[in-house]
Design a protein around this nucleic acid. Sequence first.
DNA 1: CATGAATGAGACTTCATTCAT
DNA 2: GATGAATGAAGTCTCATTCAT
Lengths: 237, 237, 237, 237
Amino acid sequence: MITEDNDSRNKTAAETDVLETTEGSKTGTGARGAGDDVSVGVVPGVSRRKQESRRKLMAAARKLFVERGYHDTRPQDISREAGVGHGTFYLHYEDKLDCFIAFADEAATELDAVLQAHLAGKGTLEEVVREILLATVEYSEANPGVLASSLTDVTVLWKGDMGRKAPATRWAEGWTAILDQMKQVGQVAADVDTRLAGYLIVGAIKQGGAYASRDQLDIHNYIESVTQLFVRALKVQ
Amino acid sequence: MITEDNDSRNKTAAETDVLETTEGSKTGTGARGAGDDVSVGVVPGVSRRKQESRRKLMAAARKLFVERGYHDTRPQDISREAGVGHGTFYLHYEDKLDCFIAFADEAATELDAVLQAHLAGKGTLEEVVREILLATVEYSEANPGVLASSLTDVTVLWKGDMGRKAPATRWAEGWTAILDQMKQVGQVAADVDTRLAGYLIVGAIKQGGAYASRDQLDIHNYIESVTQLFVRALKVQ
Amino acid sequence: MITEDNDSRNKTAAETDVLETTEGSKTGTGARGAGDDVSVGVVPGVSRRKQESRRKLMAAARKLFVERGYHDTRPQDISREAGVGHGTFYLHYEDKLDCFIAFADEAATELDAVLQAHLAGKGTLEEVVREILLATVEYSEANPGVLASSLTDVTVLWKGDMGRKAPATRWAEGWTAILDQMKQVGQVAADVDTRLAGYLIVGAIKQGGAYASRDQLDIHNYIESVTQLFVRALKVQ
Amino acid sequence: MITEDNDSRNKTAAETDVLETTEGSKTGTGARGAGDDVSVGVVPGVSRRKQESRRKLMAAARKLFVERGYHDTRPQDISREAGVGHGTFYLHYEDKLDCFIAFADEAATELDAVLQAHLAGKGTLEEVVREILLATVEYSEANPGVLASSLTDVTVLWKGDMGRKAPATRWAEGWTAILDQMKQVGQVAADVDTRLAGYLIVGAIKQGGAYASRDQLDIHNYIESVTQLFVRALKVQ
DNA sequence: CATGAATGAGACTTCATTCAT
DNA sequence: GATGAATGAAGTCTCATTCAT
């Protein structure tokens, strides 16, 4: 039995945050303490009107970033799609990049919730891998294009450090944490470099997902094939 | 023993084009056979002056696309870096995208040459995988950033079909061909979906390479770890 | 005696629109009924600021199109002359051609107003012809070059149909309507092809006006000579 | 009987140059004295090769100026269409405008030849007018678009005076000469301002021809209608 | 808080002309 | 004389952001 702390802050695999979200935009309504007794989604001191604008803007941004990509989406387009004035955009986001990051964070948070639900009670490497893939596919089917779009590499645009990690990096680190735990319980071979493996897996899922989507692979086959390859690569032989 | 033709046009693994180059730009000097004994870079019927301009432009484009990325490189930057007039750029490339594609094609051609050299005489899966990774690392050290940059996804910009495949797709198909051959000689498990695996590998190398470069991993460890994972995933158990 | 409706929507010659204006640009304030009692130039729902910009742009465009012609006037010249930013131009006009068409439409509307005033109560062919010429001369003296410039043929630039008629065509059709009415009341010979005559007259006025202006003819003589020729050509002998 | 000289240099109507050509381009082979005994089209001292280039360039220029208009035709287009090098264009023409003027002059010369042929032996005003219209139509059918294109107003481009008259002006003066002669023999009313009438007629033919062409009028009707109007306007009543 | 008109630096591209070959 | 690669000023238009209302 394993009881000591680990990098994943003493959670089981099922409890590990695969994607940790970061806090960003001007008036973010993001992660609050668990003890908040305000009604969900309502932030004290922030008018309902303002939150409504932000909600509409984010919905519009998501739609357009997915459909057109980062570079072909203008703040004006987002405002118009949201049905608010062009200037309102800048009441909620520092600039276009800030808005994109908020979008990517939101997607990461949503995906993480799905992942948590799928991981509950799954213990073997194969189960965990399969469930994560299932979660990814499920999310992508409910939110077509959002994952691929939010993983867009905009690092070149990040002036200075910005103290943030790209979504792909955060996801890779989530995998690393899971693999570390699996290694501790003997499900993953001891000689696997979990950190590197985390990055490889994220890259593989990204490219594989794009291929599966583009060539419309059978979802079931896709998941079983990828699971097979990942498990063989990682498991104790 | 397996001797009949296959999708890879009856080449051994060592002969397979990992990256097939396509033909493109206005006066492309594209992929010629490796055995051509014409002096390198001289195309009959194209004046030396014009070829010299093109060479300078491509060198400048490569430098800037790598340093700044596609979106932050302007045609006039390329021209100035090349030391030619702004208009000269448009004598050689339809537009900025055409120039980028020529750059990506050139990189693919160069990488392919390195890959061919590394694959010569390598027979086992482990050897082949290791050599490809070595080739990739070798190329990346000689041409820092070129690979990552040339793999930039600009599909959203491609108006219509353009009859081209993105570099990542071509590379994935190269891997598929290699894996198919390996499968035929019993080095790769029969139940591996080689096509999907090709895409997963490219994605993994892309992301893993970026990580290795960013965090300055020890090259030897990186190669051995990745080789280990890939081989375990693919080989007959 | 003829009293029934005709193509000119039951107007007398004096009421016929010689130049029918069309509706065009993004926020056109186009032709409103003459009886409108709203204060001139104020359109409900369009901010005063925006209308002021548009007014300044149109005044600048008119000045420059007249002085330099269509091809030697750049959108940025118009913006600078108007004292607004370069981008403001494109808030009001799709492109340069759209601006030119708006200019030509405005000139046509203005000329039409002058024509209407001159035609009031004029009944004979000679009177009508003379008054139209007088109106044209009067307008040209108040707005030197505007007529010639607005009649510039830019048809070659009109992509597709655009659902518009060139100013010269609209003017020719105005003449046709007048001649048809004159024919009905026996002032114009029955065997005159009024449609063709309308085009001939517009061409004649255009070229004759340019000549008169260039060689600084005596206005009175010019009008009387042209009236004489037109009336002889058209009237019942 | 009137025998003294006049402005038309003592020619009969049939001999009057309706369009006088001017001399221009670098190596023009234009109007030479009637006594030249060189073989037609060959100029001594000018190599056959050079003349051949010029001929091809002019044919190409005519085609493109007609099809696309002055502003949308580039010297490069003309050279390519002619099948000569881009630089060759500037061996024959000072610049693009010089080429256009040469084109317009050539068209004027050709039309004049047709006019001369038609005017031979025609004595009455009606005959002369009809024949000129017939000549114009005949030329336009053999050379569609050339007339309209060569009458393009490029005066705004003429830097300084250039000592040339626009084609329309030359044509108008040709009409004036004819009308003056007709007046002397009592075919044209004494009170007609022949100079003004010349301009009006040219404008009318220009606009009327464009209309006839655009709406595909019946040629015979067109000619008879225009003849009728012109004759009525001009003849002694 | 919301609006949308205004901004102007700057993007991409064209083209009349020159000049080395 | 002929060539066509090269030139770079100039053109049209965009768009992230600001600010007066």
